[in-house]
Design a protein around this nucleic acid. Structure first.
Lengths: 273, 273
DNA sequence: CGCTACATTGAGTGAGTTCAAAATGCGTGG
DNA sequence: CCACGCATTTTGAACTCACTCAATGTAGCG
């Protein structure tokens, strides 16, 4: 229930270096127990295996580093312990699409199991600390600890469900509504991680957001400016402060064009137009 | 090869004509072996369990019938043996989104495992014959037949990967290019099912396609008309004949100038040197 | 203090949405 | 068999949002 880390907003603009938020202390241990992994993924970990001898190796990545590229043989899943990443795919004629932005507690690689090769490319957007789960170990866990099997399937399922929520973002037609939904969704995810739900740093560029939301760099930037001008958020570079949650919700629910920032004065009465 | 079935439109819940196309003969048996299910899903089925005593029950649905609604307790996965369906979700504001169109050989429900309740609503678009896999049985399979476990995870993974391919369709292309991609994708799926890849019946309405592709009924209809007029396809209501596959491909790769996002990964060598 | 990335903003245009009317197909019932 | 009604689809006309191109502004880094 802690509302940790108010430390980024203005701070981010001025103080760039290795944030203590991005790399938690315990990431430095180098190994994590199964219980820790389960906790990260928010799935049940039967007591019978809680003190298991199996431990998982941590791996650190720096911005722009790739975990894996498309076509590479699949061997491991990853669980994000700290940091921010993006997953992308390149279609049959070289068009790049952004599929998601994995964060703490999320599983990477679930879609690549069945083909035995990675279908996506995963790139670190910040310093990252990931827990590597060799798929062989993953399988053996299910064998040796029957009580754990349901959780393993839950892991896979959650990754799938996550994709669906992402699709929901695209349901809004106007760029501003899509961005509003995106921000609300990010807000929720930051809250789940124990960070502030109103002040956070998006670690991706405008272009990456655009590719994710199905629009362009310029449009995303304009949408940010519009939300900023209407007082719903404050945005400076990649750090965002949500000023008016209800207003954002109202905007996010708009599926259709027609009325947009016509209601901006209603959204923030404090700001005189 | 069997043509697409023109046999159903809005065959209401009054007439249950069992189509010989949509419901294959062997679907009438009522039960399927594990081997059959694996074959449908195109995953390996170890010989050791091929003659297993476990059998799965078939269920028939008629157009507009729901398999399950959102929030209902999750208990079973389904594998499509015959027929066409849609999966939808309703976001927090009541807006409906179409997530996919499951067809023969696809798994339904993978995203709902971890919450123990269905996150989606699945609706039959035609007469359907589905194989029900109670999740308890699914779990016990992994326990009793270790050799099968990898395949079970593959099933989950495939459902996930499927979602990703779907996202690819939504790239910021023109409506005609999106529709072209959609048709090519459907063509491939029909081919995989053993049907004609050039003549088939889309069982969904223009509106459902629109909700899936992120545009509107009218735009989808116009795109159909344009493709029809250009001779790439012939379309009459929901039945489509692909006349010029190469032309469709050319159109599908056509992008309203969306390029770039140059990748310069610091560590792993990327696809393009 | 440059350099290079990224972000903001402007102007013009085309594509897609909206609203609305007409047309088509299909089932029902006269 | 045809007339009618309903649902879906097609098409038209106006509007406007978002894309493209391009210039300017702002960080961050050597």
């Amino acid at each position: 229930m802690n509302r940790a880390s108010q430390n980024e907003h203005q701070a981010v603009a001025s103080i760039p270096p290795v944030s203590t938020v991005d790399v938690k202390p315990d990431a430095l241990k180098g190994w994590s127990s199964l219980a820790k992994v389960c906790e990260l993924l928010r799935i049940e970990c039967p007591h019978s295996v809680a003190d298991d001898v199996v431990h998982f190796r941590h791996m650190q990545f720096r911005p722009r580093q790739c975990l894996h590229t498309i076509g590479q043989p699949f061997d491991s899943l990853y669980v994000v312990n700290a940091g921010f990443l993006k997953t992308i795919t390149v279609d049959e004629f070289g068009h790049e699409m952004v599929l998601g932005f994995p964060m703490r507690g999320e599983l990477i690689g679930a879609e690549s199991v069945y083909r035995k090769q990675y279908l996506i490319e995963t790139v670190a957007l910040s310093n990252c600390d990931l827990i590597r789960i060799p798929f062989k170990v993953f399988l053996s866990l299910g064998q040796e600890h029957p009580a754990l099997a349901p959780s393993l399937f839950s892991m896979m399922s959650r990754a799938n469900a996550h994709q669906n929520t992402a699709v929901n973002l695209l349901g809004a037609f106007t760029s501003e509504a899509r961005l509003a939904r995106f921000l609300l969704w990010m807000s929720r995810r930051f809250a789940e991680m124990g960070y502030s739900s109103t002040e956070f740093n998006l670690h991706m560029s405008r272009e990456e957001i655009g590719l994710y939301l199905g629009s362009t760099l310029a449009t995303v930037s304009r949408a940010f400016s519009a939300l900023n001008a209407s007082g719903l958020i404050s945005v400076k570079q990649r750090s965002v402060i949500i000023r008016n949650l209800d207003g954002l919700y109202r905007l996010a629910r708009l599926t259709t064009a027609r009325i947009r920032l016509r209601q901006k004065s209603a959204a923030s009465p404090s700001l005189v137009p």
